[in-house]
Design a protein around this nucleic acid. Structure first.
Lengths: 192, 192
DNA sequence: GCATTTAGTATCGAGTCGATACCAGTCGAT
DNA sequence: ATCGACTGGTATCGACTCGATACTAAATGC
């Protein structure tokens, strides 16, 4: 007698497999593996504090050695370039090149996925919310960072229309900044 | 400007990665890879027509050569045994051994996942339905089989309380049969 | 009977991934 | 100011996945 959780687990696993298969196919023309596309996509949507190998490692949930290899390949293909940090000389920033951005817009998100989404009954908002909750629970259980958008962070401060500030670094933030993923993101606790 | 579909895509991808990581950890003590656990789980929940290498290949979305290797390893570890079909001597049936079942009950579903699920606001039923719809769309777009439970098939016939029949093979089905996954499963079209 | 299709296996190479070890830079404590 | 602990990143190695290709054997269709 399968419990309810088992079905949901199987469902998520199957969806994950399908997405991986699609990513594999999407990356094939460029000689890229699923994990390469994921790395590029992260670098496209993270803020300037979170575009380092260490942050990417946490995001992907892999070891730093593995990620280092991935980055080597992406650099060889000319899809990103490395830039040393001026403050901390151990840190390296990863910047997408034009070629890298071109690959992304061409390969992701898969066309099939977008089409399937339009046929979904009802708005995707509720689905998105439920999945976000599940992801947050799993991340908390694994002591993982949440990597949410800056504007949804506990430390995000509104100072006026279009004027924001990060409570951690005290830096001012633009509206574009507020939509980028941040490594230091902290979920706002449920009790508002 | 990220569209709504992009966020959902990223969400599913991240959840998939997390589940893979957990499966990796769960299989490690047994020397098993994520795909091995997935194979065992499928064989546990499929019906007697669908426990063949070919069916598993379609379910996992891999090539038959790859799956053949996976099965070789599982057989060496004594987690499943192969049984030749009596009708068609090309086909082989895959049966879990006691050891195989033991691994499954021990390793899956991950404890962390179950706990995270209990904290989900509202029932998981709606979430399950939405994800099933999405999965069906993607499967249809990829010309993939649905692998649904027998009792949800277009060809499933009810003949009385607890008495069912398969419209394809014309065989009688028990209540337990009706809950198993079938390779020949066909989704009931939306218009009821 | 002969060609075609289907189920499954064998082998090879590219590439992921974790483990381990290592180097360089930062930070803190005395 | 030097020592030690820690952090960011790289290098190397082995186990394993996965697709591609080629192959055998059995069923099927004409």
């Amino acid at each position: 007698m399968p419990m309810a959780g088992d079905r949901l687990y199987a469902l998520l696993e199957r969806l994950g497999n399908l997405l991986r298969t699609e990513e594999r196919a999407a990356g094939l023309p460029h000689g890229l593996q699923p994990v390469h596309l994921q790395a590029l996509r992260y670098l496209q949507s993270c803020n300037r504090y979170s575009n380092t190998p260490a942050a990417l490692t946490e995001y992907l949930g892999l070891t730093k050695g593995t990620v280092s290899q991935t980055l080597l390949l992406l650099e060889e293909k000319g899809l990103l370039r490395k830039q040393a940090d001026t403050e901390d000389r151990r840190v390296i920033h990863l910047l997408l090149t034009e070629a890298g951005r071109a690959v992304l817009t061409q390969a992701l998100p898969p066309e099939l996925f977008k089409r399937a989404l339009t046929e979904l009954p009802g708005e995707g908002a509720a689905l998105e919310e439920a999945l976000t909750g599940l992801l947050r629970s799993l991340q908390a259980a694994n002591a993982q960072r949440s990597f949410g958008a800056c504007g949804t962070c506990k430390l995000f401060q509104r100072e006026g229309p279009g004027r924001f500030r990060c409570g951690l670094t005290q830096e001012p933030l633009s509206r574009e900044d507020s939509q980028l993923l941040c490594r230091e993101h902290e979920v706002i606790p449920p009790g508002h």
